[in-house]
């Protein structure tokens, strides 16, 4: 268990499609993701490719975030997660530790159902947005790949506090 460095784009590992995660490896990666996420204060999610691990593992925890505190599934460790159902569309502002200078308006589903190695659950709102953002990382997709307009939807982050 250790706090790991977060890769920054243009590191190629952020653009790879990650293979499924296996047993003990998945546990080790999940533990490192949780440690790293916790070390970063405001961070609400992290995916294995961001710490240089090619595996389908992500963690999400919005319980301390003002927008997610009242509606969440707790501290989520997602191994081989798949979104099996999605509905609604909503535009919200996202940033990413791997692209520290920019934020963007990204369109995401409002409600999703996720199946993963540890079971399944439904998620809505802010937590659902975070999960979709982290799962994108497992496919090498960054939020810049999802914005519609550079002028209207991409912004320079005003302050960046890791």
């Amino acid at each position: 268990m250790s706090v790991r460095d977060v890769l920054l784009y243009p590191d190629r590992r952020l653009k790879e499609v990650a293979p499924p995660a296996q047993g003990p490896d998945a546990e080790r990666i999940a533990a490192d993701l949780l440690d790293t996420m916790d070390s970063l204060g405001h961070c609400v999610g992290l995916a294995a490719p961001q710490i240089g691990e090619a595996a389908r593992v992500a963690v999400v925890d919005v319980t301390e975030h003002p927008r997610g505190a009242d509606r969440n599934n707790g501290r989520l460790v997602l191994v081989n997660p798949v979104i099996v159902f999605a509905s609604g569309k909503d535009v919200g502002r996202e940033g990413c530790l791997s692209i520290p200078d920019l934020t963007a308006n990204v369109r995401r589903a409002k409600r999703i159902r996720v199946e993963h190695a540890g079971g399944g659950f439904e998620s809505r709102g802010f937590e659902a947005r975070c999960i979709q953002h982290e799962l994108d990382h497992l496919d090498g997709v960054l939020f810049l790949d999802r914005v519609a307009s550079l002028v209207d939807d991409v912004f320079r982050r005003r302050t960046y506090s890791p």
Partner: peptide, 17 residues
């Protein structure tokens, strides 16, 4: 066509849409 330059001087990120 719009472009934006972000990132610091050591690793500038170019975005074009």
């Amino acid at each position: 066509l719009q472009t934006r330059l972000a990132g610091d001087r050591s690793s500038p990120l170019y975005v074009m849409m």
